[in-house]
């Protein structure tokens, strides 16, 4: 339960208007730091929901697949440039971001993760890697400004950052193949 409290504290910190404004002022920090941190806060807070509503998760997320699908849908949604742009111009979209990333993506990812087999877990990694590579392709390749709120240089930076993340995910994936993980359980 302690971690649910930590998750709530992290969430509370991220929701603070000056913190949100600072993180959203830089495109790459908005996507690569604020959004993953919101998911992380949800991952921590998930403990609370798992303890208080076990029947709900048992009923709707028995084998973990619905939860992880929900995570993928929500995560992909927030990778669309237009959505990120709208969080800055439309208050309702901003509210949706702060609800969807922790409570729909984070909580469902946490609940699903242990229920998934190792091959399904690998698929999540592959999904994230592919998404990052795709983002790198879009943001580095685009020769026009895609977001109203961010400059083209920030967009390119985000592209290179996504490429770096994709490469790091691939490194992670490779070490999973070469190092026997069962020893570290």
């Amino acid at each position: 339960m302690k971690q649910a409290v930590y998750g709530l504290l992290l969430y509370g910190f991220l929701v603070l208007p000056p913190v949100a404004a600072l993180l959203e002022s830089i495109m790459i920090v908005h996507m690569h730091m604020q959004m993953p941190l919101l998911v992380l806060s949800g991952i921590f807070m998930a403990r609370f929901f798992q303890i208080h509503f076990p029947r709900f998760f048992e009923k709707w997320n028995k084998n973990g697949v619905p939860g992880v699908l929900l995570f993928m849908v929500i995560w992909s949604y927030w990778m669309i440039p237009r959505m990120m742009d709208e969080t800055l111009s439309v208050q309702a979209v901003e509210v949706f971001k702060f609800i969807s990333l922790p409570f729909l993506a984070g909580v469902s990812l946490r609940d699903s993760w242990s229920k998934l087999g190792s091959s399904a877990q690998s698929m999540v990694f592959v999904f994230l890697t592919v998404v990052f590579l795709f983002m790198a392709w879009i943001y580095i390749g685009a020769d026009k400004q895609i977001c109203n709120n961010y400059l083209e240089v920030e967009q390119k930076t985000l592209g290179w950052g996504s490429l770096a993340f994709a490469l790091i995910m691939i490194i992670y994936f490779l070490q999973l193949f070469y190092i026997d993980q069962s020893e570290y359980k």
């Binding site: 830089i26 790459i28 920090v29 690569h32 730091m33 240089v153 390119k156 930076t157 290179w160 950052g161 770096a164 993340f165 790091i168």
Partner: peptide, 9 residues
């Protein structure tokens, strides 16, 4: 990556 992509780019 988080720290250095922005300034270097």
């Amino acid at each position: 990556a988080m720290a250095y992509v922005v300034p270097i780019m």
